[in-house]
């Protein structure tokens, strides 16, 4: 029997090819984070020497890390694939959306508008994403092919049973499917895979020095979007990012890990989950993710 990383890889490639075969206009959602970088790597294995049978789509929240955007553009040039960018700023103007209030505003809820607009404008019937079931409780019950209605809504009670690895991608016009090829991977699997295949990542993931505000035991980088108040405790720390989301709501982790091996050792040691340690927006309520997913979020 093959090694577990090879089994996970086989499963993901199978799902990517199934998506290409069953849908008219799929797209791969690319965030610039490690999970979607791994997805690109898997897509290369699934479809080369041909081009990807789908474009890459990035929802730019306007609060991205500049390093992640630079990495995105470099990668897209290297692999020579098409990239479509949707801007949350555009949706804010178009729909006169209100920004989330508070010190560390998250555009997670707003980016749903942009995503649904991009889906509609391009008539995408499937969107491939890098979400994993181990991330969060509401994700643990997510399907590989997750059907969404015209409003992008996820209805947990109406999800289709998935038997064996036979995937049913038949949908009505206007509906679309979110596809999760790395559903069965854990955070550690992703890192071990990155190590095994020497996949390049943005330098944000490795230890670097940064000026941060200390907020409820979490470190939030000072940036164009987050400026310190006179009452803030500001520190210069060696940090790395365990997840790469918006600069406004992703916390850095104190770390001196500068290699993949050191990062893997830290993850094994740490007793806090990925989202728990780095996301300022999932902890509002126990069902925060479930609610966002129902509204069309990934």
């Amino acid at each position: 029997m093959n090694d577990y990383l090879e089994q996970l890889e086989d499963e993901a490639i199978y799902i990517l090819r199934e998506t290409a075969a069953q849908f008219e206009k799929p797209a791969l959602l690319f965030s610039g984070g490690k999970d979607s970088i791994v997805l690109i790597h898997l897509a290369l294995k699934a479809f080369r020497p041909a081009k990807f049978p789908f474009p890459l789509v990035h929802i730019d929240t306007g609060h991205n890390f500049p390093e992640a955007l630079a990495f995105r553009d470099k990668l897209v040039t290297e692999i020579d694939e098409k990239l479509i960018v949707g801007y949350v700023e555009d949706s804010i103007k178009k729909y006169n959306l209100k920004e989330t209030q508070g010190r560390f505003p998250s555009r997670n809820a707003l980016q749903t508008y942009t995503l649904l607009d991009v889906i509609q404008a391009n008539e995408f019937d499937a969107c491939i994403g890098g979400a994993r079931r181990d991330e969060e409780k509401a994700r643990a019950k997510e399907r590989i092919f997750s059907v969404r209605d015209d409003f992008g809504q996820w209805e947990p009670k109406l999800q289709r049973p998935e038997l064996w690895n036979i995937l049913n991608g038949k949908i009505h016009k206007g509906h679309n499917v979110r596809v999760f090829p790395i559903s069965n991977w854990t955070e550690l699997d992703v890192w071990n895979y990155i190590k095994k295949h020497k996949i390049e990542l943005p330098n944000l993931y490795f230890s670097h020095e940064r000026d941060c505000i200390v907020h409820q035991d979490k470190l939030v980088a000072i940036s164009d979007f987050i400026q310190p108040l006179p009452t803030d405790v500001v520190v210069k720390e060696k940090v790395r990012y365990r997840t790469v989301g918006d600069m406004t709501c992703t916390a850095a982790v104190p770390s001196t890990a500068s290699t993949i091996d050191e990062i893997i050792a830290e993850i094994i040691e740490t007793s806090i989950s990925e989202r728990g340690q780095t996301r300022l927006d999932d902890q509002l309520s126990e069902a925060a993710m479930e609610d966002r997913k129902k509204q069309g979020y990934f």
Binding site: Y4, R133, D134, A140, K141, Q159, S183, T186, L188, D189
Partner: peptide, 13 residues
């Protein structure tokens, strides 16, 4: 619903 849970030891995932 069916929920999927993951854990590993040094011998198996």
């Amino acid at each position: 619903d069916v929920a999927y849970k993951y854990f590993s030891t040094d011998k198996r995932k």
